[in-house]
Design a protein around this nucleic acid. Sequence first.
DNA 1: ATGTTTCCACCTAGGTGAAAACTT
DNA 2: AAGTTTTCACCTAGGTGGAAACAT
Lengths: 198, 198
Amino acid sequence: MRVDLQGSDLWKRFHEIGTEMIITKAGRRMFPAMRVKISGLDPHQLYYITMDIIPVDNKRYRYVYHSSKWMVAGNADSPVPPRVYIHPDSPASGETWMRQVISFDKLKLTNNELDDQGHIILHSMHKYQPRVHVIHKERGEELSHVRAVPQGDGTRTLSFPETTFTTVTAYQNQQITRLKIDRNPFAKGFRDSGRNRT
Amino acid sequence: MRVDLQGSDLWKRFHEIGTEMIITKAGRRMFPAMRVKISGLDPHQLYYITMDIIPVDNKRYRYVYHSSKWMVAGNADSPVPPRVYIHPDSPASGETWMRQVISFDKLKLTNNELDDQGHIILHSMHKYQPRVHVIHKERGEELSHVRAVPQGDGTRTLSFPETTFTTVTAYQNQQITRLKIDRNPFAKGFRDSGRNRT
DNA sequence: ATGTTTCCACCTAGGTGAAAACTT
DNA sequence: AAGTTTTCACCTAGGTGGAAACAT
């Protein structure tokens, strides 16, 4: 089985600067969104595909403006309720999954520990790593948004180092802001002089 | 097993006037959309839920303005490629289906016999009846958008007389137009004097 | 000080019927 | 004359970062 990250060039441009992702109470999408292509599945078996996001380390960070760098600012906050994003096409046959690019663009990040929308709960100012899970569906098995992914022979877990990010409630590095505005269609209103009329 | 039509009051108001549905080349949604609630499924079995739309009779119609009535205008045009709308949540467990209102609002009608978007192909100026199919998923079975629904013990077919309609490319009865504008949120721009400024 | 929340103008994406143009 | 296609202003629905207000 093989999983390829799509849009890897864009991820690398963000990664070189130090990717930041906004988290809000209501939930905010990631940009870029994770998109993968899978091969080597059994076309006639059923699989769930899910994503979770794990801490990269046990630290809390702060952004130092004059050096444009993230510095350790202490130990991580206490753990947060674990959440799993189950790709909405799940469960589907290997054939179905392999035919398409699998996009996680509807996944949302929140800093609300009491969230009841099924969004992924994270701490602000921490570093995280998204992971993709390919889970062979055994008969009768059901997945939950709020329980850890089942481990074992039927589960493969993949992650891509260039997709790590730091959570923020407002962008710290202006180069990140600029890249987001430049590439995210929904931020088009902030491009060029589009907003220079107030 | 039991299937209840939701929004039945609105359907009846349309039906009393004589429901019309626009069909276009690109595909047009139905308004109202079919919405049903199902009970009596086996919570742990898998089901597909699908919709097709069959001719009510073998006739072609025309609208007579001065009597505000649809009159037979000859025999039906030659049959059209059969299409099935597979509800996007399919397949799902009986438990999942019974927990929600099942909406067919994304289903689209077209008069383009060469349509490749998977929309339901119909003749203009004909009378039709939508049908809901609840299909018990046998292992390995796959459904197709372009083949008839499998018949047999594993399939239940339901229809609601108040949801019959006549296809048009432009509304014939102005009472239908008024009801649509009044109730469809997307037609809000035509309400009251909202458009009386040109 | 530093980080968070709320509100908002500006977008994307796409569903309406009207009107004009087109077809037969 | 009758029906169809195309285009369009006007909506719904919801994803952006900025700015100001708020919190600690």
